[in-house]
Simulated assay, not measured.
Amino acid sequence: MSDENEKFDRRSVLRGMGTAAMSVSFFGTATAASARDADADETDPFHDFAADVSTDVDDPTRTELVGRYADAESLKAAFRDDADPILQTLADEGVLESATLSAFEFGEVREEDLLVPTDAASGAGVTAIEHADRGVSAHLMATTASEDHRVALYRQPELDNTYAKVETDDGGFYVHDVGDGVTISADCGWERVYCSSSICQTGDPPSCTEQQRYCCYGPNYETKDCTDTRYVCSCTCDDI
């Protein structure tokens, strides 16, 4: 396929895992299997954000951002500012005992460690990320574990973005506050690769064929793996 028939940029290659946003009534079903079967025409808020994130931040900026939250009280205060909807959802669904930060460890703040929701990584940390459209931010992390759940809470205060990653014996999922309600999504989903010039539906504007691939992101925006590929009629030819 020629360059004229494809439009490649960072957003088109990585943007928008195609898992439909799942309501909290389906809290326990946000698995990789449900994401694979989700509507390909919709994008998931967490993955839509994650697709444009890089951990490659220049050293002076990283040092300044990390320094803002290097002590436990500053980091905890930043979570208090915006984490209530996430904490309430986790408590309502029995992941946390209460909608507070009391289950999380804030004694020692690890700098530059990327914390994930595992039994061995209880604690708090801070590093920095950059979003392609919204700029740089500190990346705050706090983790906890119970008998049935491993939970990591994340916040980028400069971008006003908060989410949690929950892992159980049956799999993992994300709880994300997008500002107009809490959504739940799986680890994996369909993401856009490119929009071709092949018209699949006439109209004004006509629709063209989009290639999508099934990929998984880690809680600190790591791309883990990409497997299946499919072609759907979901992009406008004006995007080419």
Rank of each mutant, 00 (worst) to 15 (best):
M1A: 12
S2P: 14
N5Q: 15
E6R: 12
K7W: 13
R10S: 11
R11T: 11
V13P: 01
L14K: 02
M17N: 06
M17G: 09
S23C: 15
G28V: 12
G28M: 13
T31A: 11
A32F: 11
A33N: 06
D37M: 02
E42M: 08
D44Y: 05
H47I: 03
A50Q: 04
T61H: 08
R62Y: 08
T63S: 10
T63E: 08
L65H: 09
R68S: 00
A72T: 01
K76C: 00
A77F: 00
F79W: 11
D84K: 05
I86C: 08
A91P: 04
L96Q: 01
T100N: 04
L101S: 06
F104M: 10
F104V: 06
E112Q: 11
L114S: 11
P117S: 02
D119A: 14
A120K: 07
A121N: 10
I129E: 00
H131Y: 06
R134G: 01
V136Q: 13
S137L: 02
M141Y: 01
R150K: 10
Q156F: 10
P157V: 13
T162H: 04
K165G: 04
E167M: 15
D169M: 05
D180E: 14
G181D: 13
T183N: 12
W190G: 05
E191Q: 14
V193S: 07
Y194V: 14
C195G: 06
S197P: 09
D204N: 09
P206S: 06
T209M: 05
E210D: 01
K224H: 13
T227K: 15
T229C: 02
T236V: 06
D238S: 14
D239I: 04
I240H: 10
I240S: 05
